[in-house]
């Protein structure tokens, strides 16, 4: 695998995580617990889908086979999707939506901050734009973690349940294989493992402040970055890709 192929795969991983998370959030449209929150979640969804569009367009350019960002989004089956498993987890309840977002926001803030100084100029440029948005998202999700954690008994127990359930997907954020090794060696991305400690420290501090107990150790779920997903991703794609599958080539 050469650097360009590795960068193609890496852009798919980042792009897919944003696209799938953006789609999950868009499912909350008209289902937010209140109007302002409905608007907030759908605006955040738009940012993630916008980031996905930029990343997947770039992936298409790197691949050089003429596939556009749209082709990559709408015409790949689930085993060719490389998003983090965390991003595809369903909107079980509002606490799940917030914890999933909080975990990914904290991760993306650290990642994009490093990618700003990537030796790949395109990636660095995108990261500097994305970081601003992600910091804004994190402010929103952190605030909700505090409000739910310090709110009622019900909100506290739901938040704790979501943290305990989603914690097993955290390990995948810091995994690396040949793709990341090649790119880290070339100064294009940070070593994923180096983000682990800062992430844990930041998340633990916020959870403590929200009076959520430290999640119990659990097995780590893995596979999303290599196309092995839970059943729920197939359902998501069936809905997201429906139009292009039913009417190939349909355009606005």
């Amino acid at each position: 695998m050469d650097t360009q192929q590795a960068l193609f795969r890496y852009n798919l991983r980042l792009g897919d995580t944003n696209l799938i998370l953006g789609h999950r959030l868009s499912e909350m449209c008209s289902r937010g617990p209140m109007l302002e929150e409905d608007i907030a979640l759908t605006n955040i969804a738009l940012d993630h889908i916008g980031q996905a569009e930029a990343l997947l367009d770039y992936a298409g350019t790197l691949e050089g086979l003429g596939r556009t960002g749209d082709d990559l989004a709408y015409l790949r089956p689930e085993w060719e999707y490389y998003n983090l498993l965390l991003a595809e987890q369903p909107n079980t309840d509002f606490a799940f939506v917030i914890v999933r977002q909080f975990m990914i926001d904290t991760y993306q803030c650290l990642l994009y901050d490093h990618l700003r100084s990537s030796k790949d100029e395109t990636l660095a440029g995108m990261a500097s734009r994305f970081l601003k948005e992600t910091l804004y998202h994190q402010r929103h999700s952190r605030n909700w973690v505090f409000r739910l954690g310090l709110g009622t008994e019900e909100s506290h127990s739901r938040l704790t349940a979501a943290v305990n359930e989603l914690w097993k997907y955290a390990g995948e954020l810091f995994e690396s294989d040949e793709v990341e090794s090649i790119l880290a060696a070339a100064g294009i991305i940070p070593n994923p493992a180096s983000l682990r400690e800062p992430w844990l420290e930041s998340v633990r501090k916020d959870l403590r402040q929200a009076s959520v107990p430290e999640p119990p150790a659990s097995h780590a779920a893995t596979g999303g970055r290599n196309g092995r997903h839970g059943e729920q991703l197939g359902h998501l794609l069936a809905e997201m890709q429906y139009l292009q599958r039913a009417f190939p080539g349909a355009a606005w």
Binding site: A54, E121, T122, G125, M126, S128, R129, L131, K132
Partner: peptide, 9 residues
Amino acid sequence: ETVYSPAWT
């Protein structure tokens, strides 16, 4: 053409 860097402020 879309250019992301420097980021809009």
